[in-house]
Write a protein that binds this DNA or RNA. Structure first.
Lengths: 201, 201
DNA sequence: CCGCTTTCTTTCCCGTCCGGCAAGTTTTCC
DNA sequence: GGAAAACTTGCCGGACGGGAAAGAAAGCGG
């Protein structure tokens, strides 16, 4: 009963999580240039070669945690009342949950700066969001009774969510005022639901 | 009058275009693995080192043409009548222009397969779209009289356009039926303008 | 038209990174 | 308990990235 998955699998997941966590911590504490297969592997007490078996790049390791958290957001969406309109679920769940999962705002700021400075980080964060979107697309498709592999709308909406979160995060990182990231995400989502009305003169 | 930019600058642009074009052609004709700094440089008759002075990776070279074309789409948007609502301009211009600029549908299919197969291509195509979105955000901000550096809406809309085009391209590449890419883009845009209404039961 | 300066191209080269391979270790399964 | 499968590790070769300096081309002043 303790093992619905094998010991082997649990160890692998643990190692992957530990490596990812170590990569993240190293970046927060010592900057991006301090994150290398060697330093990360040493922190987890495995060989550098093993690090490369788990992650194709240091960027992937750093951002892996975000994809995991996207998974838990998707689970939270699944847990919403069955009849609730999807847009309502999203606007209810996403802003606070994203803000909650991101942790220290100082950490997020460091991450955003790394993403904006380093081309490899920038590219990889786009990939991470893309992977997260697949998770969201699956949930949305479940809840609307469509198939996200064949129907446009779920994928479009999932992609729009990614856009909302990235746009909000960017605006947050660049703004001098300290509006909350949750509010920014909420505003982006509501604009999207309204069809991005441009107040044109 | 022929030279509003210097000869030097024109030569650089020509070299960049030639390298990008060669990289694209090589991919279409001989597959992704045939595209290397060496082969591309040879096709343009420059040194491999020069190729790397222009592009950070083969993927960047292959996709550079797409970003250029995004620029010409942005120009087309600028040329629309001043009073026209932005969404109308977009729906009017984007679908046909994208389809027209992409050329042979067989080529596009090869590109999509390369993007879906190769992680580096996948990452780079996201970056290319991101760069294109900055161009679109600038146009939208001009036409709505907002500043895309401080206002959310133009960036959100520009990002949504990228999403529409990528989602459409993906659906097109995966569909067995031969709907036109222009129609798919139009459908995505109209769904976005309508706030992605999900026909929920 | 001619040198001088600036910018780009090219060659050479070295350190780093990536990933295949095979030996050693751990887990699984019967 | 022992064979088979899966994972970890060190080693290694080839690819890649980019610095430095010489050579070629373009711009600029006379």
């Amino acid at each position: 009963m303790t093992s619905e998955v094998s010991l082997r699998e649990r160890k692998k997941q643990a190692t992957r999580a530990a490596l990812s966590h170590a990569a993240w911590s190293l970046m927060i504490e010592h900057g991006l240039q301090a994150v290398t297969p060697e330093t990360v592997a040493e922190a987890v007490d495995v060989s550098p070669r093993t690090f490369r078996n788990y992650f194709a790049s240091r960027e992937e390791a750093i951002l892996y945690g975000l994809v995991r958290r996207a998974g838990s957001i998707a689970d939270a969406l699944r847990a919403r009342p069955a009849g609730e309109p999807v847009w309502d679920s999203l606007i209810e769940v996403l802003p606070d949950m994203v803000a909650g999962l991101l942790g220290e705002s100082r950490d997020l700021l460091l991450l955003m700066h790394a993403i904006l400075r380093d081309p490899a980080m920038f590219a990889q964060h786009l990939v991470a969001f893309e992977h997260s979107q697949e998770l969201f697309a699956a949930v949305i498709a479940e809840r609307t009774g469509t198939d996200h592999r064949y129907d446009l709308s779920p994928r479009l909406l999932a992609a729009a969510l990614g856009v909302a979160m990235r746009t909000a995060a960017l605006a947050w990182a660049q703004s001098e005022t300290d509006v909350s990231i949750a509010d920014l995400i909420r505003r982006c989502l509501m604009e999207l639901r309204a069809g991005i009305p441009l107040g044109e003169s």
